[in-house]
Design a protein around this nucleic acid. Structure first.
Lengths: 230, 230
DNA sequence: GACAAAATCAAACAGTTGTTTTAAACATGT
DNA sequence: ACATGTTTAAAACAACTGTTTGATTTTGTC
């Protein structure tokens, strides 16, 4: 079956050290594979199309990554790393901002990645594919891509409504906020048909971010004031 | 290519009249195909597995539905009809309820279908697959499955906040509500990992529905009162 | 029961898939 | 230059795909 992996593949992980010639086709393969996997899904994506786009031979994938799943795993790792960097960027804002500012910042950063990010819809489509047909890589998607944002929002929400972090109202409120964001990232096919006039341009996304923040803060502040006065 | 469709397929749609012998295998095929399509996605699902589960011959699909996409379309239509009945049920409440009651009713009905519906996760998984890898059947999914709910919520929201139905705030508010609902239907893989303690039992869903309604109405009422007083 | 239409079946077809092989081109250190 | 290990290239492989065929059984009607 995969015995050739022991004899041919140089290493399952990218070898440290000076970039060799292979790294070029390796990166080209990951780049092309990202496009194809995101566009067609894991199963429907063909090694031949990936290699054609990468300008490589059909055998390149199996030589470099062992098999198709090895390539997919590597693509997902790359995508996660890019998303993690975006999250880290917005994390810099975290400590110095008020809870409300944190919430507004997270919402904005998350929505803006829809048009400003590198390879705008790669990550989203890959994750969507993981949602509908989870692979063993699902755990990493959640832990690296979603949990940091989730926890940061949870702290801010708890601070505003004045309830413990593990209170049910706190958790459900975070879900409400995240759900609103995810709607615009995951439901674009629906949105495009339900509201054809809604274009996700940068300044439109800006208004959407403001709306989500206003929409959410109306409840959070109301509950917070209720706690304070009662 | 598909010339056989003119010579062999009795009819592209189910023939009216007394149920013939074929209808039995036809229903068995749809039932089995629903499971397989939902579990593996359109592309990865194989006709052979569907027919094996249905206890039918490999040629049965092409004979009855023309081709694989014909079967998929029919499965989606069935799934949509079931969802449409649930929507129709809640539509009975529509005319007699206040806008707030309508919103609460839609949210509750939608969430409750997560545990009460027949074949609970078929429809969801099929639609999720359509989201990540749209097929030509996507249009129907939106038009029959989502637009009715969307429009009903839009009318109710417009009534509460006192803005035209096509005002941007109205549309974005509907998106916020729908997004919260969809979060619980589409993000279960994430939820199961982010909040393992959150079980979607009927009474838990009941509280979630109340929360989403409270969360949303806080903003809607605030805007509505603002309009009224200013 | 006879007979035509409809439905089912096993077998095969043509095409595509991931993967492997074999050999040639390339780099690299001596 | 040679030898050595690494990277690419073209072709082939075996398995699987949706689909079709033609024979065979079942069904409905006289």
């Amino acid at each position: 079956m995969a015995h050739h992996a022991l004899t041919r593949i140089p290493s399952p992980v990218r070898p440290r050290g000076k970039p060799k010639a292979q790294d070029l086709t390796r990166d080209k393969l990951i780049e092309a594979a990202g496009t194809v996997f995101a566009g067609r899904g894991y199963r429907a994506a063909t090694i031949r199309e990936i290699c054609r786009r990468a300008g490589a031979n059909v055998a390149a994938v199996n030589y470099t990554f062992g098999d198709k799943m090895g390539l997919y795993t590597e693509v997902l790792r790359h995508s996660m790393r890019a998303a993690g960097q975006a999250a880290a960027m917005s994390a810099a804002l975290d400590s110095s901002l008020s809870p409300e500012g944190t919430i507004r910042g997270v919402i904005r950063a998350r929505l803006m990645s829809l048009c400003h990010g590198p390879r705008p819809d790669w990550h989203i489509r890959l994750v969507m594919h993981e949602f509908s047909h989870p692979t063993p890589a699902m755990g990493r998607v959640v832990d690296e891509g979603m949990r940091p944002i989730y926890e940061r929002v949870r702290k801010a929400v708890g601070a505003i409504i004045g309830l413990p972090l593990d209170h049910e109202t706190t958790r459900l409120s975070v879900n409400s906020i995240v759900g609103q964001i995810l709607f615009y990232t995951f439901s674009q096919p629906v949105l495009a048909r339900l509201q054809p006039e809604l274009k996700l341009t940068p300044d439109q996304l800006d208004r959407i971010a403001d709306h989500i923040a206003d929409f959410s803060l109306a409840y959070l502040k109301k509950v917070g004031h209720g706690k304070r006065h009662g």
